[in-house]
Design a protein around this nucleic acid. Structure first.
Length: 490
RNA sequence: GGGCCCGUAGCUCAGUGGUAGAGCAUCUGCCUUUUAAGCAGGAGGUCGGAGGUUCGAUCCCUCCCGGGCUCACCA
């Protein structure tokens, strides 16, 4: 770094501002490479980017500069640049420059800008990890000395993005996934809304919250764990379809699938049920994927996933039977506990029947569900906000979508009976008193809203980060979140 | 929180109970179509931190910090 600061001072002494105000860019690296034709009129371009490699050969210098779209080689020649050529010695890998010149093809065939003039746009005083690469005879990109330290990649994502181009592609895809979802939902006439992140009572999911404090009101507030209860209030208020894409916060462990803050889509549609929502969901994800990946069959790890609808629909108890050989339907809590033990699934003594079933399911069934699967019809105790099943009062009309063993969506026919809702909340309060820290609190205002009448409604939640993982073939959530949560650096 | 593993030069990594090495980056010199440019030479390190064992610790032990994988917890 010391050396680079000296170079910086030297540039200033020569009357060169190492941090000027603008540069007239009129072309991008990959577009030049695509548009160049050998027998065309000379093509004059003005490109800007970061120096990623530099090969000095006395009175000629080759360098690759990287802009937002890719890389292009530039060629500096003493003949052409005169005294300005000598200033090149003050430039390093990592510096940002702008060049103007004519595009040509070198002896070895690479499309290159012959620099007629150039300008320093930002001197980098901190050295960049230098990643070298070569294209072999088969056209494969071989990377030497890759920048792979995960801690540094996540803490200094800006460096990761500079030197690992495939990382950038993941986040470009992520943006496209989210904008495609918006376009599709908007085209169906759904209204995008924003609901509170700071909530006096947290609800809509079972999870522990982050707590914060409002000074003026001198009261604790919670960062939301879900948007659900507010969005349903809007259905009560007369919107037919509302959705929100935003961050939820859950104060729990972090691992390959979980980050304390994560992005959720929630969608509520009046006069529909979960059957309608299944069809909508498979079509939505199919269409989003097509726009992003241009094929319905995608790779995830060693698996090929076919997102073409219709997806398999299977009742939870049927899947349990298929993968464990046990029929759990209608069993008491004690019986379930015995079955869990027999199957080798550890269950805490604090949890109730619903959660025991959930445990067995996530451990023995879910990992086997690779192709997109709607798991439907959950036990009522697990789902205090879902409507009872029309054919079986012990179940609710709920589905989750599992892809590659990952739960990606959760949806119900929404409970709109205010009396039943109160009973379900009271059951939750009982579990809470028993020591279940994630059980829900009673939200009186939400019940009051239901008392005014909510139409039959279907609701859907999609974990956007997990969806992005699947559509970009990334194994950990940290690789689809730009700045994943880390312990602070010392 | 438990288990296993990791932390050595800017980056990627070797290594040994006698205070360190490679490749690339960097610096000097040569080089006007190179591309992992090349050739010659040079510099660069509190071996994550603090203790301990030892004549002597980067190496062995303990604790701490940070990270990875995994299990648990958890959607």
């Amino acid at each position: 770094m010391k050396r680079r600061i000296e170079e910086l001072e030297e540039l200033k002494k020569l009357g060169i501002n190492p941090y000027p105000y603008e540069f007239p860019v009129n072309a991008y690296s990959v577009e030049i490479l695509q548009n160049f034709k050998d027998d065309d009129q000379p093509m004059n371009v003005s490109v800007a980017g970061r120096i990623m490699s530099i090969r000095r050969m006395g009175k000629a210098t080759f360098s690759h500069i990287q802009d937002s779209k890719g890389k292009i080689q530039v060629y500096f020649k003493k003949d052409v640049l005169g005294d300005k050529y000598d200033i090149l010695r003050l430039l390093d890998i990592g510096d940002i420059i702008g060049v103007k010149g004519e595009v040509f093809r070198t002896k070895t065939g690479e499309i290159t800008v012959k620099v007629e003039d150039y300008q320093v746009l930002a001197k980098a005083i901190r050295p960049l990890p230098v990643v070298k690469e070569k294209i072999d005879e088969r056209g494969n990109r071989i990377v030497y000395d890759p920048f792979t330290d995960k801690e540094m990649r996540y803490r200094q994502r800006y460096v990761d993005l500079i030197v690992n181009p495939e990382v950038k592609q993941v986040f470009i895809k992520r943006a496209k996934i989210i904008s495609s979802i918006r376009e599709i939902l908007d085209s169906h006439g759904f209204i995008e809304v924003e609901t509170p992140i700071l909530q006096p009572i947290y609800g809509g999911a079972t999870a522990r919250p982050f707590v914060t404090h409002h000074n003026a009101l001198d009261m604790d507030l919670y960062l939301r764990i879900a948007d659900e209860l507010y969005l349903k209030r809007l259905i009560v208020g007369g919107f037919d379809g509302v959705y929100e894409i935003g961050k939820d916060f859950r104060n729990e462990g972090m691992d390959r699938m979980h980050n304390p803050e994560f992005t959720m889509l929630e969608l509520y549609v009046a006069y529909k049920d979960y059957n309608w929502m299944m069809e909508f969901t498979e079509n939505l994800i199919y269409e989003v994927n097509l726009r992003v990946n241009e094929t319905p069959k995608i790779k995830f790890g060693d698996n090929e996933i076919d997102l073409t609808p219709p997806w398999r629909r299977a009742p939870m108890f049927e899947l349990l039977k298929q993968y464990t050989g046990e029929n759990l339907e209608g069993k008491s809590e004690d019986e379930l506990r015995a079955i869990a033990t027999r199957l080798g699934v550890d269950v805490s003594s604090k949890i109730g029947a619903g959660k025991i079933i959930d445990e067995i399911f996530s451990e023995l069934v879910q990992p086997n569900l690779i192709q997109p699967t709607f798991v439907i019809d959950y036990p009522v105790e697990m789902s205090p906000l879902a409507k009872r099943h029309r054919n079986n009062p012990r179940l609710v009309e709920r589905f989750e979508v599992v892809i590659c063993g990952m739960e990606v969506c959760n949806a119900f026919s929404e409970l709109n009976d205010p009396i039943d809702q109160r009973l379900r909340f009271e059951e939750q309060a009982r579990l809470r008193a028993q020591g279940d820290e994630e059980a829900m609190a009673i939200d009186e205002d939400f019940i009051r809203a239901l008392e005014y009448g909510m139409p039959p409604t279907a609701g859907l939640g999609i974990g956007i980060d997990r969806l992005v993982m699947i559509l970009t073939n990334q194994r950990t959530i940290r690789d689809v979140i730009l700045f994943p949560h880390m312990r602070p650096e010392k």
